[in-house]
C-alpha cells in the first residue's frame, strides 16, 4: 500500500514536470513502455491479458487529446470530458469491486475500448480480437 502511494506521488510529480514541457517537447509524454492493458487488479485472469501499445495505438487512431481516454470525474461522480486524468490509474476511480456505485474496472475497460471502436468502426470489438490466445 505504502509502495503504491509512493508510486502515485512520484507519478504525480512526473506528470507535473511533464506538463511544464508539454508544448515544447511532446515526446516527453511518450509511453513507449506501455504494451498491455494493466490487469494486475483482477487477480487471476479468465482470458489472456489485452495487448495495448499506447503510442502506436494513438498514432494510428490519430489521438492527440489525452482526455478522450483519460477522462476525469465531476463532483457528481460522472464522466468529465473537460478534465483530463492522465497519470492516474484507471483503477483509482474504477475499482474492480466498487462499493459506491462507481463503474467497475472491467466494465470501464470494455466500454472505453469497444464503444470507441464501434463508434469509429475501427479496431477490435469482439472478445477474441483483444483477448488473443
Amino acid at each position: 500500500m505504502q509502495k503504491t502511494h509512493i508510486r502515485q506521488t512520484l507519478a504525480f510529480i512526473a506528470v507535473v514536470a511533464a506538463l511544464l514541457v508539454v508544448y515544447l517537447a511532446p515526446a516527453a509524454l511518450s509511453q513507449d513502455d506501455m504494451t498491455m492493458v494493466p490487469a494486475d487488479a483482477f487477480g487471476v485472469l479468465q482470458r489472456p491479458q489485452v495487448a495495448f501499445e499506447h503510442d502506436a495505438h494513438n498514432e494510428k487512431a490519430m489521438l492527440d487529446d489525452c482526455v478522450v481516454c483519460h477522462h476525469g470525474r465531476t463532483d457528481d461522480g460522472l464522466m468529465d470530458m473537460e478534465y483530463s486524468s492522465e497519470g492516474e490509474t484507471c483503477e483509482s476511480c474504477h475499482p474492480v469491486n466498487p462499493e459506491n456505485g462507481e463503474t467497475p474496472l472491467m466494465r470501464a475497460y470494455h466500454r472505453q475500448c469497444i464503444t470507441c471502436h464501434t463508434d469509429e468502426a475501427m479496431g477490435p470489438v469482439t472478445c477474441g480480437e483483444c483477448h488473443r490466445k
Binding site: P124, C127, G128, E129, K133
Partner: peptide
C-alpha cells in the same frame, strides 16, 4: 469456434 479463436474472430 469464436472462443477458441478458430477462424477470424470478428
Amino acid at each position: 469456434l469464436a472462443y477458441h479463436q478458430i477462424g477470424p474472430s470478428l
